[in-house]
Design a protein around this nucleic acid. Structure first.
Length: 480
RNA sequence: GGGAGCAUAGCUCAGCUGGCUAGAGCAGCUGACUCUUAAUCAGCGGGUCGGGGGUUCGAAUCCCCCUGCUCCCA
């Protein structure tokens, strides 16, 4: 970031203040500082006349002759300190003059409650821990500029405590998911992020180069094919919670790197995954949000069990008419166009039907809904249903109109898998993961598998409208 | 990829039917004040109006291009 000339004026003033403090014997960038606790813990266990030693960033300062009130911010929490000339002594009081908003201080003293009822630390002594050379955003309105909030998230976190609280929720949601999964006996593993071929999903990968091997490599688009190798190797319950990378567009629900938990259970199927995700999400919501009613207004969702389960076919029949699957293709095309859908002339029935699902149905599914028995052409890596080869034994969990978690009865037939890979590769043998096929030929147990989009789940649980509000440093175009 | 909107002081925002030296609040500076809390009171400084080009006697304001962000659509 370049500094405009006027920004330097603020900086010059602060450098001068730093100089004065230094001349008075203060160290502008101090050492480790032993606190009796955080501000949050101190406020929670507050008792008058208790001694306390706290640290934080000065975010307000009200000076009145021979006494000063200031707020120390520690994470999202603030505590007022009272600096009185009689108490800290003449010199320390004079030196406080050169403290700027944004400086980190330590303060030692006794807790009390002011006349107006605010919990406050009466300082007997203060310590300079770090001098800030640049000013903070506005104290009342916070930092509003959306672009600055993302580009300089640290300022957003300082100025907008609710942002910090949201990310604290994110941390707890992920921690509780791990607790839930390990509680069910799932082992957390790590598989390659740098892969010689980017398999396990249909997406454009980021390409990179491993110089030492003289080989082109890819950032993974999914961990799936490695986790399945672990099923072959005898792991029966595994998960990996980490980043995937997809070289595709940015919008309010897509970031090129996003967090996903993939879960596999040997001898399970998509129904065991269904029960697992419902239990995980409701438990996490209850623990972290304290309720199954999450979000507010347009973002409100009711997570109460049992969640709706409905077949893709039934959703289509309800939307497109009970006779939909019996209509001649041309009649069906016309009906879709009557729904104001843009249907190219070369689309087959499956494509038209899916357009109806995506454009008209999916966004209406607000509370959690398992959409089951999807057409086989939509999901090439899943097992067909035993009673109907045209549909696969999968679910798509939709919440707030978006796909949150797909779950499969995994394909473990190596011959069928090879056929589908060859179909996808269209004759390009280099695109087929032979090593994975070899693994399958050694025998993979039947298994249920599922991926939960963590960022989207966190959007649902926190009521966030954009993925950029739940990712600390969302991807933006570089700017000088 | 297409359309619409936004960009003014460190921050939050006015100003935009072209016309005094571009304003306010916060932050900053000087001074007063020993329970304030968006502290108060008196005074002061602070601008490449995102960047470039054009129209005009005159542009923050109108037109074109570029950059970034936001929203809608694909």
């Amino acid at each position: 970031m370049e500094h405009g000339p006027k920004e330097n004026e603020f900086r010059q003033q602060r450098l001068a203040n730093l100089q004065k403090l230094q001349e008075m014997g203060y160290t502008p960038f101090g050492q480790a500082f032993a606190r009796t606790g955080t501000v949050a813990a101190t406020l929670a266990g507050f008792a008058e006349h208790q001694p306390a030693t706290l640290a934080g960033r000065v975010v307000s300062k009200r000076q009145m002759g021979k006494s000063i009130f200031a707020h120390l911010q520690d994470g999202p929490d603030r505590l007022q300190i009272y600096v009185k000339k009689d108490l800290v002594g003449e010199q320390a009081f004079a030196a406080f003059e050169w403290i700027d908003l944004g400086d980190h201080l330590g303060a030692e003293g006794e807790l009390f409650v002011t006349k107006t009822g605010e919990k406050t630390l009466k300082a007997a002594k203060w310590t300079l821990l770090s001098k800030a050379l640049l000013p903070l955003p506005e104290k009342w309105h916070g930092l509003q500029d959306v672009e600055l909030r993302y580009r300089q998230r640290y300022l957003d976190l300082i100025a907008n405590p609710e942002v910090r609280r949201l990310f604290d929720q994110r941390t707890r949601i992920i921690a509780e998911l791990r607790v839930g999964l390990t509680g069910h006996g799932f082992a957390e593993v790590e598989t390659p992020m740098i892969q010689p071929m980017a398999g396990g999903a249909a997406a454009n990968p980021f390409k990179t180069r491993y110089e030492a091997l003289g080989a082109d490599m890819f950032l993974r688009i999914a961990p799936e094919l490695y986790l399945k190798r672990l099923l072959v190797g005898g792991y029966d319950k595994v998960f990996e919670l980490n980043r995937n990378f997809r070289n595709e567009g940015l919008d309010r629900s897509h970031n090129p790197e996003f967090t996903m938990v993939e879960i596999y259970e040997a001898y399970g199927d998509c129904r065991s995954m269904q029960r697992l995700v419902e239990e995980l999400v409701t438990t996490v919501a209850q623990k972290v949000c304290g309720s199954l009613q999450v979000g507010a207004g347009d973002m409100a969702v009711n997570l109460t069990s049992p969640w709706r389960v409905v077949t893709y076919r039934d959703l289509i029949l309800a939307q497109a008419g009970a006779d939909w699957y019996d209509l001649p293709l041309e009649t069906a095309r016309q009906r879709a166009r009557d729904f104001k859908l843009d249907i190219p002339a070369d689309w087959d029935r499956g494509a038209i039907t899916h357009e109806i699902y995506e454009k008209l149905i999916e966004k209406t599914l607000i509370n959690p809904t398992f959409v089951t028995r999807l057409p086989v052409e939509l999901v090439p890596l899943a097992k067909a249903c035993a009673d109907d080869p045209t549909v696969v034994d999968v679910f798509e969990l939709v919440i707030r109109g978006r796909e949150i978690a797909p779950g499969y009865s995994e394909l473990n037939n190596p011959i069928e898998q090879r056929r589908r890979f060859e179909e996808q590769a269209k004759g390009d043998a280099a695109k087929i993961d032979q090593d994975f096929l070899d693994a399958l030929e050694h025998g993979m147990p039947p298994a249920g598998g599922m991926g939960i989009g963590i960022d989207r789940l966190i959007m649902v649980l926190t009521g966030a409208e954009s993925i950029r509000d739940v990712v600390l440093f969302p991807q933006l175009k570089p700017r000088g």
